[in-house]
């Protein structure tokens, strides 16, 4: 059978090729600029390939951003782990132990995911200050855990809805209680759920900026704030901000490229509809 190549097919691939180029251009620009020597970076020649590869921008940016990267790693791991575990328990209750009003509570939870966070910023700032948590990572972790609860509960609830209720019922008849059903049946089945949720939370917390800048002092700033300061103002040479951007993007890009399937599932779950 010979493949018929129609005009439509050619057009399809042509349009797709153009779109691919357009979507990759910013990444190309970031890489090229970060590899240039500072005096080689000029506006008219911005798109051109560097004459010599200069890797020193990366080590320089890494030296500047290292404290921020360390902060972000601690912050992201703690916040992701806590909110995922809590979300799993909540999702278990919301899907398998429905009680009168649990759907209302669930909807009230979801609301927390859609508020513009500016609306809770001032009380959050005041509360953290009163709890002596303002400025440091624990306060930021607390904020990320609390406001991460809606999405993690949502993903786990939808995930656990796929576990047949009959399985839970029969375990109950065998005398298993609330927690033993969770540890023996639900939890072992949840590994994909944990992967989806923690990847989603990881990217969200890693990329967050508003709380980072409002709730932490300089030494505790996460990577997004560090990068904004590195790139902000009248940046002298663009190789550093670009190298910093790439450094800040690498962890989430790795997740996305290698575990993209799970990332997309988190993304689709975030749109509420099952």
């Amino acid at each position: 059978m010979t493949r018929r190549i129609s005009f439509g097919t050619v057009l399809l691939y042509l349009v797709l090729a153009v779109l691919v180029v357009v979507y990759l251009l910013p990444a190309y620009m970031a890489v090229v600029t970060s590899l240039k020597l500072p005096n080689e970076i000029t506006l008219p020649r911005a798109w051109e390939f560097p004459s010599t590869l200069n890797w020193s921008s990366f080590s320089e940016a890494l030296a500047l951003l290292k404290p921020n990267l360390v902060n972000s790693v601690i912050l992201t791991i703690c916040a992701t782990a806590l909110s995922t575990v809590l979300g799993s328990l909540n999702g278990y209750v919301f899907s398998k132990w429905k009680f009168k009003g649990s759907e209302v509570i669930f909807t009230l939870f979801l609301f927390g995911m859609f508020i513009p966070y500016q609306v809770i910023l001032i009380p959050l700032f005041q509360t953290l200050r009163a709890m002596n948590l303002y400025g440091g990572l624990p306060g930021l972790i607390l904020a990320h855990v609390v406001y991460g609860l809606p999405i993690t509960s949502l993903i786990f609830r939808n995930f656990y809805a796929q576990i047949p209720t009959a399985l839970i019922e029969s375990a109950r008849l065998d005398g298993a209680g609330f927690f033993s059903i969770y540890t023996r049946i639900v939890f072992p089945l949840s590994i994909p759920g944990f992967v989806v949720t923690s990847l989603w939370q990881f990217t969200q917390v890693w990329n967050e900026f508003l709380w980072g800048i409002c709730l932490t002092r300089h030494s505790e700033n996460p990577i997004t704030v560090g990068l904004a300061q590195l790139a902000g103002g009248q940046a002298v040479s663009w190789n550093l901000p670009m190298a910093g951007s790439i450094l800040a993007a690498i962890p989430v890009l790795c997740i996305y490229v290698f575990l993209g399937r799970y990332f997309i599932r988190g993304l689709l779950a975030g749109s509420v509809k099952e």
Binding site: A27, N207, E208, F209, G244
Partner: peptide, 23 residues
């Protein structure tokens, strides 16, 4: 193709903003 069109979504707005400011 899907990977290419979706990767910007995983980036932080600060990263996007820094690159696009230069673009």
């Amino acid at each position: 193709l899907r990977t290419v069109f979706l990767y910007p979504m995983s980036l932080s707005f600060i990263v996007t903003g820094t690159i696009w400011r230069w673009l």
